[in-house]
Design a protein around this nucleic acid. Structure first.
Length: 336
DNA sequence: AACAGGAACAACCGCCAGAGT
DNA sequence: GACTCTGGCGGTTGTTCCTGT
Protein backbone atom coordinates (compact mmCIF):
# COMPACT_ATOMS: atom_id res chain seq x y z
CA UNK A 1 0.00 0.00 0.00
CA UNK A 2 1.52 3.25 -1.04
CA UNK A 3 5.14 4.13 -1.09
CA UNK A 4 7.53 3.75 1.76
CA UNK A 5 8.12 6.92 3.75
CA UNK A 6 10.77 9.23 2.37
CA UNK A 7 12.48 9.53 5.69
CA UNK A 8 11.79 8.93 9.30
CA UNK A 9 11.69 12.10 11.27
CA UNK A 10 13.90 10.66 13.99
CA UNK A 11 17.57 11.44 13.60
CA UNK A 12 17.03 13.94 10.86
CA UNK A 13 19.35 16.87 11.10
CA UNK A 14 17.99 20.37 10.81
CA UNK A 15 19.46 23.79 10.51
CA UNK A 16 22.09 25.24 8.25
CA UNK A 17 23.90 22.99 5.84
CA UNK A 18 27.61 22.55 6.26
CA UNK A 19 30.04 22.70 3.33
CA UNK A 20 30.69 18.99 3.82
CA UNK A 21 27.03 18.20 3.44
CA UNK A 22 26.86 20.39 0.38
CA UNK A 23 29.74 18.55 -1.18
CA UNK A 24 28.18 15.19 -0.48
CA UNK A 25 24.89 16.27 -1.95
CA UNK A 26 26.43 17.86 -5.01
CA UNK A 27 28.63 14.85 -5.58
CA UNK A 28 25.66 12.56 -5.45
CA UNK A 29 23.55 14.65 -7.78
CA UNK A 30 26.48 15.04 -10.09
CA UNK A 31 26.63 11.28 -10.34
CA UNK A 32 22.97 10.38 -10.34
CA UNK A 33 21.28 13.56 -11.38
CA UNK A 34 18.57 15.40 -9.48
CA UNK A 35 15.39 13.56 -8.69
CA UNK A 36 14.46 10.54 -6.64
CA UNK A 37 15.09 12.61 -3.57
CA UNK A 38 13.86 9.87 -1.35
CA UNK A 39 16.97 7.91 -2.14
CA UNK A 40 19.37 10.74 -1.53
CA UNK A 41 19.66 10.59 2.27
CA UNK A 42 20.04 6.84 2.35
CA UNK A 43 22.52 6.69 -0.49
CA UNK A 44 24.61 9.59 0.70
CA UNK A 45 24.41 9.03 4.40
CA UNK A 46 23.22 12.56 4.90
CA UNK A 47 21.17 12.95 8.03
CA UNK A 48 18.72 15.11 6.18
CA UNK A 49 15.26 14.40 4.97
CA UNK A 50 14.71 14.15 1.26
CA UNK A 51 12.77 17.35 1.23
CA UNK A 52 15.60 19.23 2.84
CA UNK A 53 18.00 17.83 0.24
CA UNK A 54 15.77 18.88 -2.57
CA UNK A 55 15.34 22.38 -1.21
CA UNK A 56 19.01 22.76 -0.61
CA UNK A 57 19.68 21.77 -4.17
CA UNK A 58 17.00 23.84 -5.81
CA UNK A 59 17.49 26.95 -3.74
CA UNK A 60 21.19 27.01 -3.27
CA UNK A 61 23.34 24.40 -4.95
CA UNK A 62 21.70 24.13 -8.32
CA UNK A 63 23.92 25.40 -11.12
CA UNK A 64 23.02 28.66 -12.72
CA UNK A 65 21.65 30.29 -9.65
CA UNK A 66 22.53 33.90 -9.38
CA UNK A 67 22.98 35.24 -5.93
CA UNK A 68 23.57 38.64 -4.54
CA UNK A 69 21.81 41.88 -5.06
CA UNK A 70 18.96 42.21 -7.46
CA UNK A 71 19.42 44.62 -10.29
CA UNK A 72 17.07 47.46 -10.91
CA UNK A 73 15.94 45.62 -13.98
CA UNK A 74 15.10 42.52 -11.98
CA UNK A 75 13.31 44.58 -9.38
CA UNK A 76 11.06 46.06 -12.00
CA UNK A 77 10.33 42.68 -13.45
CA UNK A 78 9.45 41.28 -10.07
CA UNK A 79 7.20 44.18 -9.25
CA UNK A 80 5.36 43.93 -12.51
CA UNK A 81 5.10 40.18 -12.39
CA UNK A 82 3.92 40.26 -8.82
CA UNK A 83 1.25 42.73 -9.76
CA UNK A 84 0.21 40.50 -12.59
CA UNK A 85 0.56 37.06 -11.03
CA UNK A 86 0.28 37.71 -7.34
CA UNK A 87 2.43 35.77 -4.92
CA UNK A 88 3.10 33.00 -7.38
CA UNK A 89 6.78 33.02 -6.79
CA UNK A 90 7.52 29.96 -8.81
CA UNK A 91 5.81 31.48 -11.81
CA UNK A 92 7.64 34.72 -11.31
CA UNK A 93 10.91 32.89 -10.92
CA UNK A 94 10.36 31.17 -14.22
CA UNK A 95 10.86 34.53 -15.86
CA UNK A 96 14.03 35.21 -13.94
CA UNK A 97 15.96 32.10 -14.85
CA UNK A 98 18.84 32.67 -12.49
CA UNK A 99 16.72 33.39 -9.45
CA UNK A 100 14.93 30.93 -7.26
CA UNK A 101 11.41 31.40 -6.09
CA UNK A 102 12.71 31.48 -2.55
CA UNK A 103 15.11 34.24 -3.44
CA UNK A 104 12.46 36.29 -5.12
CA UNK A 105 10.04 35.71 -2.30
CA UNK A 106 12.59 36.81 0.25
CA UNK A 107 13.52 39.82 -1.78
CA UNK A 108 9.93 40.80 -2.16
CA UNK A 109 9.21 40.43 1.52
CA UNK A 110 12.31 42.22 2.70
CA UNK A 111 12.73 44.92 0.10
CA UNK A 112 10.04 45.51 -2.40
CA UNK A 113 7.02 45.19 -0.20
CA UNK A 114 8.40 47.86 2.06
CA UNK A 115 9.27 50.10 -0.82
CA UNK A 116 5.83 49.80 -2.29
CA UNK A 117 4.26 50.30 1.09
CA UNK A 118 6.10 53.51 1.63
CA UNK A 119 5.15 54.78 -1.75
CA UNK A 120 1.53 53.92 -1.21
CA UNK A 121 1.62 55.75 2.08
CA UNK A 122 3.05 58.76 0.35
CA UNK A 123 0.35 58.61 -2.22
CA UNK A 124 -2.30 58.42 0.47
CA UNK A 125 -0.81 61.32 2.33
CA UNK A 126 -0.85 63.32 -0.83
CA UNK A 127 -4.49 62.41 -1.11
CA UNK A 128 -4.19 62.26 -4.81
CA UNK A 129 -7.64 61.02 -5.59
CA UNK A 130 -7.44 61.66 -9.27
CA UNK A 131 -4.45 59.40 -9.57
CA UNK A 132 -6.18 56.70 -7.59
CA UNK A 133 -9.22 56.75 -9.77
CA UNK A 134 -7.05 56.69 -12.83
CA UNK A 135 -5.21 53.70 -11.45
CA UNK A 136 -8.35 51.76 -10.84
CA UNK A 137 -9.63 52.54 -14.27
CA UNK A 138 -6.38 51.49 -15.83
CA UNK A 139 -6.30 48.32 -13.79
CA UNK A 140 -9.76 47.46 -14.97
CA UNK A 141 -8.65 48.06 -18.50
CA UNK A 142 -5.77 45.67 -18.35
CA UNK A 143 -7.81 43.06 -16.57
CA UNK A 144 -10.39 43.20 -19.29
CA UNK A 145 -7.72 43.02 -21.87
CA UNK A 146 -6.18 40.08 -20.12
CA UNK A 147 -9.45 38.23 -20.03
CA UNK A 148 -10.16 39.04 -23.63
CA UNK A 149 -6.82 37.67 -24.68
CA UNK A 150 -7.28 34.56 -22.60
CA UNK A 151 -10.58 34.05 -24.29
CA UNK A 152 -9.06 34.56 -27.68
CA UNK A 153 -6.21 32.23 -26.88
CA UNK A 154 -8.59 29.55 -25.78
CA UNK A 155 -10.66 29.88 -28.88
CA UNK A 156 -7.60 29.62 -31.03
CA UNK A 157 -6.45 26.55 -29.20
CA UNK A 158 -9.86 24.95 -29.34
CA UNK A 159 -9.91 25.47 -33.04
CA UNK A 160 -6.45 24.11 -33.39
CA UNK A 161 -7.27 21.02 -31.41
CA UNK A 162 -10.73 20.67 -32.90
CA UNK A 163 -12.22 20.43 -29.49
CA UNK A 164 -15.81 19.65 -29.09
CA UNK A 165 -17.65 22.76 -28.03
CA UNK A 166 -19.51 20.78 -25.47
CA UNK A 167 -16.32 20.66 -23.50
CA UNK A 168 -16.82 24.25 -22.62
CA UNK A 169 -19.36 23.13 -20.10
CA UNK A 170 -17.04 20.71 -18.43
CA UNK A 171 -14.77 22.31 -15.97
CA UNK A 172 -12.53 19.30 -15.81
CA UNK A 173 -11.74 19.29 -19.48
CA UNK A 174 -11.47 22.88 -20.38
CA UNK A 175 -8.13 24.34 -21.02
CA UNK A 176 -7.61 27.56 -19.24
CA UNK A 177 -8.11 28.60 -15.71
CA UNK A 178 -7.35 32.21 -15.41
CA UNK A 179 -8.17 32.13 -11.76
CA UNK A 180 -5.51 29.57 -11.15
CA UNK A 181 -2.87 31.46 -12.99
CA UNK A 182 -3.82 35.04 -12.64
CA UNK A 183 -5.71 34.85 -9.44
CA UNK A 184 -9.34 35.54 -8.90
CA UNK A 185 -10.60 38.20 -11.17
CA UNK A 186 -12.55 40.90 -9.43
CA UNK A 187 -16.20 40.68 -10.00
CA UNK A 188 -17.22 42.90 -12.80
CA UNK A 189 -19.21 43.07 -15.93
CA UNK A 190 -16.36 41.38 -17.72
CA UNK A 191 -17.29 38.11 -16.12
CA UNK A 192 -20.36 38.07 -18.16
CA UNK A 193 -18.51 39.15 -21.18
CA UNK A 194 -16.07 36.27 -20.82
CA UNK A 195 -17.86 33.47 -19.07
CA UNK A 196 -15.36 30.89 -20.22
CA UNK A 197 -12.79 32.18 -17.86
CA UNK A 198 -14.81 31.15 -14.90
CA UNK A 199 -15.17 27.54 -15.79
CA UNK A 200 -11.94 26.47 -17.27
CA UNK A 201 -8.88 24.72 -16.05
CA UNK A 202 -5.44 25.63 -17.14
CA UNK A 203 -2.56 23.62 -18.38
CA UNK A 204 -0.74 24.81 -15.30
CA UNK A 205 2.52 25.92 -16.73
CA UNK A 206 4.00 29.33 -16.94
CA UNK A 207 4.85 29.00 -20.58
CA UNK A 208 1.17 29.30 -21.17
CA UNK A 209 1.20 32.67 -19.57
CA UNK A 210 3.88 33.68 -21.98
CA UNK A 211 1.83 32.34 -24.84
CA UNK A 212 -1.14 34.31 -23.73
CA UNK A 213 0.92 37.39 -23.40
CA UNK A 214 2.79 36.85 -26.58
CA UNK A 215 0.30 38.68 -28.68
CA UNK A 216 0.99 41.78 -26.73
CA UNK A 217 4.52 41.73 -27.84
CA UNK A 218 4.92 43.98 -30.76
CA UNK A 219 8.50 43.59 -31.65
CA UNK A 220 11.50 41.50 -30.80
CA UNK A 221 13.48 42.91 -27.98
CA UNK A 222 17.02 44.01 -28.07
CA UNK A 223 17.09 44.44 -24.35
CA UNK A 224 19.96 43.11 -22.46
CA UNK A 225 19.01 40.65 -19.84
CA UNK A 226 19.62 41.35 -16.24
CA UNK A 227 22.29 38.80 -15.93
CA UNK A 228 25.33 40.74 -16.88
CA UNK A 229 26.62 40.73 -13.38
CA UNK A 230 25.99 37.08 -12.84
CA UNK A 231 29.57 36.02 -12.85
CA UNK A 232 30.81 38.22 -10.11
CA UNK A 233 27.90 37.64 -7.83
CA UNK A 234 28.02 33.94 -8.30
CA UNK A 235 31.57 33.59 -7.34
CA UNK A 236 31.29 35.84 -4.39
CA UNK A 237 29.14 33.43 -2.46
CA UNK A 238 30.35 31.23 0.28
CA UNK A 239 29.13 27.95 -1.02
CA UNK A 240 31.90 25.88 -2.54
CA UNK A 241 29.66 24.48 -5.15
CA UNK A 242 28.08 27.58 -6.47
CA UNK A 243 28.60 28.43 -10.01
CA UNK A 244 26.80 28.31 -13.22
CA UNK A 245 26.47 25.51 -15.64
CA UNK A 246 29.42 23.81 -14.08
CA UNK A 247 30.17 23.22 -10.52
CA UNK A 248 33.56 23.14 -9.08
CA UNK A 249 34.67 22.36 -5.60
CA UNK A 250 37.46 24.77 -6.04
CA UNK A 251 36.80 28.00 -7.74
CA UNK A 252 40.05 28.25 -9.59
CA UNK A 253 38.23 28.20 -12.84
CA UNK A 254 36.12 31.20 -12.21
CA UNK A 255 36.90 32.79 -15.50
CA UNK A 256 35.56 29.77 -17.32
CA UNK A 257 32.49 29.84 -15.19
CA UNK A 258 31.88 33.50 -15.79
CA UNK A 259 32.38 32.98 -19.45
CA UNK A 260 29.91 30.17 -19.38
CA UNK A 261 27.35 32.44 -17.81
CA UNK A 262 27.95 35.08 -20.37
CA UNK A 263 27.65 32.60 -23.16
CA UNK A 264 24.38 31.41 -21.88
CA UNK A 265 23.11 34.89 -21.31
CA UNK A 266 24.14 35.89 -24.76
CA UNK A 267 22.05 33.05 -26.10
CA UNK A 268 19.31 34.13 -23.81
CA UNK A 269 19.33 37.60 -25.17
CA UNK A 270 19.26 36.33 -28.68
CA UNK A 271 16.17 34.37 -27.93
CA UNK A 272 17.84 31.03 -28.38
CA UNK A 273 16.17 28.44 -26.26
CA UNK A 274 18.01 25.90 -24.23
CA UNK A 275 16.44 23.16 -22.30
CA UNK A 276 16.54 22.04 -18.74
CA UNK A 277 18.71 19.04 -19.14
CA UNK A 278 21.18 20.23 -21.66
CA UNK A 279 24.29 18.29 -20.92
CA UNK A 280 27.25 20.49 -21.29
CA UNK A 281 30.56 19.44 -22.62
CA UNK A 282 32.45 21.77 -20.43
CA UNK A 283 34.84 20.01 -18.17
CA UNK A 284 36.03 21.29 -14.88
CA UNK A 285 38.46 19.19 -12.94
CA UNK A 286 37.22 16.22 -14.82
CA UNK A 287 33.72 16.63 -13.57
CA UNK A 288 30.79 17.01 -15.86
CA UNK A 289 27.65 18.71 -14.79
CA UNK A 290 24.29 19.07 -16.27
CA UNK A 291 22.89 22.42 -17.02
CA UNK A 292 19.92 22.81 -14.78
CA UNK A 293 19.01 26.29 -15.58
CA UNK A 294 15.36 26.79 -15.83
CA UNK A 295 13.98 25.88 -19.19
CA UNK A 296 12.87 28.14 -21.91
CA UNK A 297 10.14 25.95 -23.12
CA UNK A 298 9.58 25.43 -26.76
CA UNK A 299 6.54 27.59 -26.98
CA UNK A 300 7.69 30.20 -24.58
CA UNK A 301 8.73 33.55 -25.80
CA UNK A 302 12.29 34.49 -25.19
CA UNK A 303 12.77 36.06 -21.85
CA UNK A 304 13.92 39.29 -23.34
CA UNK A 305 10.61 39.67 -25.06
CA UNK A 306 8.78 39.38 -21.83
CA UNK A 307 11.18 41.76 -20.24
CA UNK A 308 10.55 44.14 -23.04
CA UNK A 309 6.87 43.86 -22.48
CA UNK A 310 7.21 44.27 -18.77
CA UNK A 311 9.57 47.15 -18.86
CA UNK A 312 8.73 49.06 -21.94
CA UNK A 313 5.98 51.43 -21.07
CA UNK A 314 4.78 51.67 -24.59
CA UNK A 315 5.24 48.09 -25.65
CA UNK A 316 1.85 46.82 -24.71
CA UNK A 317 -0.22 49.91 -24.90
CA UNK A 318 -1.23 52.67 -27.13
CA UNK A 319 -0.42 56.27 -26.54
CA UNK A 320 -3.17 56.43 -23.97
CA UNK A 321 -1.71 53.55 -22.13
CA UNK A 322 -4.06 50.77 -21.30
CA UNK A 323 -2.21 47.78 -20.03
CA UNK A 324 0.78 48.61 -17.99
CA UNK A 325 -0.42 52.03 -17.22
CA UNK A 326 -2.00 50.85 -14.05
CA UNK A 327 -0.38 53.03 -11.55
CA UNK A 328 2.45 50.64 -11.22
CA UNK A 329 4.45 52.69 -13.58
CA UNK A 330 3.99 55.65 -11.38
CA UNK A 331 4.48 53.58 -8.32
CA UNK A 332 7.58 51.85 -9.44
CA UNK A 333 9.00 54.90 -11.05
CA UNK A 334 9.35 56.34 -7.62
CA UNK A 335 11.37 53.39 -6.59
CA UNK A 336 14.26 53.95 -8.87
C1' DA B 1 33.55 48.08 22.92
C1' DA B 2 29.00 46.56 23.98
C1' DC B 3 24.42 46.35 23.15
C1' DA B 4 19.85 46.67 20.80
C1' DG B 5 17.16 46.71 16.94
C1' DG B 6 16.51 45.92 12.24
C1' DA B 7 17.64 43.73 7.84
C1' DA B 8 18.74 39.84 5.12
C1' DC B 9 18.51 35.25 4.02
C1' DA B 10 18.55 30.19 4.63
C1' DA B 11 15.74 26.76 6.09
C1' DC B 12 11.58 24.81 7.87
C1' DC B 13 6.53 24.00 8.04
C1' DG B 14 2.17 22.91 6.34
C1' DC B 15 -0.71 22.30 2.60
C1' DC B 16 -1.98 20.50 -1.85
C1' DA B 17 -2.10 17.95 -6.31
C1' DG B 18 -0.58 14.19 -8.54
C1' DA B 19 1.34 9.67 -8.69
C1' DG B 20 2.47 5.02 -7.01
C1' DT B 21 0.91 0.79 -4.83
C1' DG C 1 -11.00 3.21 -5.09
C1' DA C 2 -8.42 3.98 -1.00
C1' DC C 3 -4.38 4.92 0.98
C1' DT C 4 0.16 6.79 1.18
C1' DC C 5 4.10 9.24 -0.46
C1' DT C 6 6.54 12.66 -3.41
C1' DG C 7 7.40 16.89 -5.16
C1' DG C 8 6.15 21.60 -5.45
C1' DC C 9 4.61 25.76 -3.56
C1' DG C 10 3.82 29.75 -0.48
C1' DG C 11 4.12 31.35 4.20
C1' DT C 12 6.71 31.70 8.21
C1' DT C 13 10.48 31.27 11.41
C1' DG C 14 15.20 31.22 13.11
C1' DT C 15 19.77 32.64 12.70
C1' DT C 16 23.32 35.63 11.27
C1' DC C 17 24.93 40.00 9.88
C1' DC C 18 24.81 44.94 9.88
C1' DT C 19 24.08 49.47 11.67
C1' DG C 20 23.18 52.95 14.91
C1' DT C 21 23.53 54.44 19.67
Amino acid sequence: MGRPPCCDKIGVKKGPWTPEEDIILVSYIQEHGPGNWRAVPTNTGLLRCSKSCRLRWTNYLRPGIKRGGFTEHEEKMIIHLQALLGNRWAAIASYLPQRTDNDIKNYWNTHLKKKLGKIQENEKSNNNSSDISRQSISKGQWERRLQTDIHMAKQALCEALSLDKSDKNKTSTSIFDSNKIFGPVPSSSTEQANPIIQTSTYASSTENIARLLEKWMKKPSTNNSSSSQAGSSLMSTSSPSEGTTFLSFNSSNSSDISQSIEDHDAKFDQGINFTTTTTTTHENNGILFQDERKPILDNEMPLSLLEKWLLDDAAAQGQDGDFMDLGLEETTADLF
